[in-house]
């Protein structure tokens, strides 16, 4: 799922300090799971902002809401009769949700309340790590189920760069070398012969390199 972390409070305060009516909008999706933007975070941020404004001697209305998913029109529409009452909103959804909220309520200023980081896993509570970069054409079948695009610092497609040290990446010794992981995995699977067959040069046009992407699923559309 998408992983995000709460933005520093001072940054949010700086963004919203001149407004009078604010909505803090959470998302019950990915950001709830990674504890950056669910209803709890909404309540904490709203309380913090109310405290800030009161001590600064300003009367500001700060309201709370959380939507099932901010990346869906239907859920965003649930705010339609309230949105006019606010000058600005802070979205605690990921960048996708924040933008969609802004798109839907074109005339309102929407600030992001979280920093959206990557697609990854919860290794344990409070510890997340990246797994996929959404390249648009998955090559996991060729790399022992471990993604070199997301997990190799240099996105090497055919074996390690030569810099790995004791299983750690030369760019960042805190992360394992993806190619070492791939090698170990293929060995476990008895598929080391995969290394004999190079991964074809990748068509990066399906990745971000081809510009913003769109999926059109004719099979789902009528």
């Amino acid at each position: 799922m998408i992983k995000a972390k709460p933005k520093p409070l001072e940054e949010i305060i700086d963004n919203v300090k001149d407004f009078n009516k604010l909505l803090i909008a959470g998302c019950d999706g990915c950001v709830t799971v990674c504890e950056a933007g669910g209803l709890k975070e909404v309540k904490i941020l709203a309380a913090a902002l109310r405290l800030y404004f009161t001590q600064a001697g300003k009367q500001v209305q700060v309201d709370e809401a959380s939507l099932t998913r901010q990346c869906e029109k239907e859920y965003l529409a649930q705010l339609s009769d309230r949105m006019d009452g606010y000058d600005a909103a802070v979205s605690l959804a990921c960048g996708v949700g924040a933008q969609y909220l802004a798109e839907m309520y074109n005339h309102k200023i929407v600030f992001p309340g979280v920093d959206t980081c990557f697609m990854g896993v919860n290794e344990e509570r409070g510890l997340y790590s990246e797994r996929c970069q959404a390249c648009g054409r998955c090559i996991l079948a060729e790399t022992g189920g471990i993604c070199p695009i997301a997990r190799c610092s240099k996105r090497m497609l055919n074996g390690p760069c030569g810099g790995s040290d004791k299983g750690k990446c030369e760019i960042n010794p805190d992360i394992p070398c993806a190619w070492e992981l791939i090698y170990e995995r293929l060995k476990t699977l008895g598929q080391l012969d995969r290394f004999e067959r190079p991964v074809e040069p990748k068509d990066w046009s399906t990745s971000r390199d081809g510009g913003p992407r769109k999926i059109v699923r004719e099979d789902l559309r009528i």
């Binding site: 019950d28 799971v33 504890e35 669910g38 209803l39 959380s66 099932t68 344990e124």
Partner: peptide, 12 residues
Amino acid sequence: ERCAACLVCVRT
């Protein structure tokens, strides 16, 4: 209704 099945309660 609104449980995100996030596992936080399970883990804590």
